[in-house]
C-alpha cells in the first residue's frame, strides 16, 4: 500500500510565472522525505503538484512528469480526482469538516467513492483509522460530536485519520505542525514515524529539527531572489544534509546562517 514517486524535469507555473524550476527527485516508498527551505522557495508549491492540488488555483499549471510507480500523474486522460484519492494530503491548518461529526469526518473520503458499506464495516474502519492516527482513545466516546470541538492537535490527527481511511499510496503533509503546540507536535511526529511502515510520507516543514527527527531523506529548496523560481538544491540522506552537505547554501541554511 505504498508507492514511490519519480519526478523528472518538473516546472511549476502560476500563469506565466515560473514558481519552481526543473525538479528531479525520487521519493522512496515506505520512507519519510522532508522538504526544507526558506519561505517562498516553492517547497509547498512543489508538494501540491504531487497530488495535482496545484492546479486548483486558477491559472496554475505544470510541465514535466510525476511518476507514481511508473504511471505519469500528468499523462493525458488521467483524472486528478483519481490521483487525489491515491495520494492523500494533510494541510498546514487542521481542517476537519465543521459540519460533520468526528465519525463522518473519518468516513468523508470513503463515502465519496460512493461505496455503500455496512455499518459494522464503517465502525471498524473508523476505529482502525483513528487508532492509526493515535486519536482513538481520546475520541471514542464522542464520535458523534463535531470535529471542530477538538483541540488543534487532535483536529490535525483527525485529518490524518481522514487521509489514511481511504488507504492512500502516499501521504503529503504541508507543514502539519506549524499551527500546533510542542506536545501536539510531538504526537504528530510519533505518528509520522509509525505511518512510514505502511505509507510513503512527504512532509514540508520550516522546522529543521523536525526534519532531522522524522525524515529518512531531506530535500533542500532555495530561491535565488524575489521573482526568481525556486530550485531543488540538494537531496540526500537526512544525516548527510545536516552534517555533511555538499552545497554551500545548504550548509548555510541548516546551520542557521540564513532563512
Amino acid at each position: 500500500m505504498s508507492k514511490r514517486i519519480d519526478v523528472s524535469d518538473l516546472n511549476v507555473y502560476y500563469s506565466d510565472f515560473l514558481a519552481v524550476e526543473d525538479v528531479n527527485i525520487t521519493l522512496d516508498a515506505k520512507s519519510v522525505t522532508a522538504f526544507i527551505g526558506p519561505s517562498g522557495c516553492g517547497k509547498s508549491t512543489f508538494l501540491r503538484t504531487l497530488n495535482r492540488m496545484h492546479e486548483v488555483i486558477p491559472g496554475a499549471r505544470v510541465e514535466g512528469k510525476v511518476l507514481l510507480d511508473g504511471d505519469n500523474l500528468y499523462a493525458d486522460g488521467v483524472d486528478p480526482v483519481t490521483v487525489r484519492s491515491q495520494i492523500g494530503m494533510v494541510f498546514q491548518r487542521p481542517n476537519p469538516f465543521p459540519t460533520m461529526s468526528i465519525r463522518d469526518n473519518v468516513l468523508a473520503g470513503v463515502k465519496l467513492n460512493s461505496r455503500r458499506m455496512p455499518k459494522s464495516d464503517a465502525d471498524e474502519l473508523v476505529e482502525k483509522s483513528l487508532r492509526g492516527a493515535n486519536l482513538w482513545n481520546e475520541v471514542k466516546d464522542r464520535l458523534g460530536k463535531p470535529g471542530s470541538g477538538l483541540s488543534g492537535g487532535q483536529q490535525q490527527r483527525l485529518c490524518i485519520a481522514r487521509a489514511i481511511a481511504v488507504s492512500p499510496e502516499v501521504i503529503l503533509m504541508d507543514e502539519p505542525c506549524s499551527a500546533l503546540d510542542p506536545i501536539s507536535t510531538l504526537a504528530i511526529e510519533d505518528l509520522i514515524n509509525e505511518l512510514k511502515d505502511e505509507y510513503t510520507v512527504v512532509i514540508v516543514t520550516h522546522n529543521m529539527q523536525q526534519a532531522a527527527r522524522v525524515s529518512d531523506k531531506t530535500a533542500f529548496f532555495n530561491i535565488a531572489g524575489t521573482g526568481k523560481p525556486g530550485k531543488l538544491i540538494e537531496f540526500a540522506e537526512t544525516a548527510t544534509i545536516f552534517n555533511n552537505p555538499s552545497q554551500k547554501s545548504t550548509e548555510d541554511y541548516v546551520s542557521g546562517r540564513f532563512g
Binding site: 497530488n51 486548483v56 483519481t82 487525489r84 494530503m89 481542517n95 476537519p96 465519496l112 481511504v166
Partner: peptide, 14 residues
Amino acid sequence: PMLHQEAALALGAT
C-alpha cells in the same frame, strides 16, 4: 472556506 474546499478535493472529491 478554501481550507475545507481543499480538504474535500484532496480526498478525491469531484
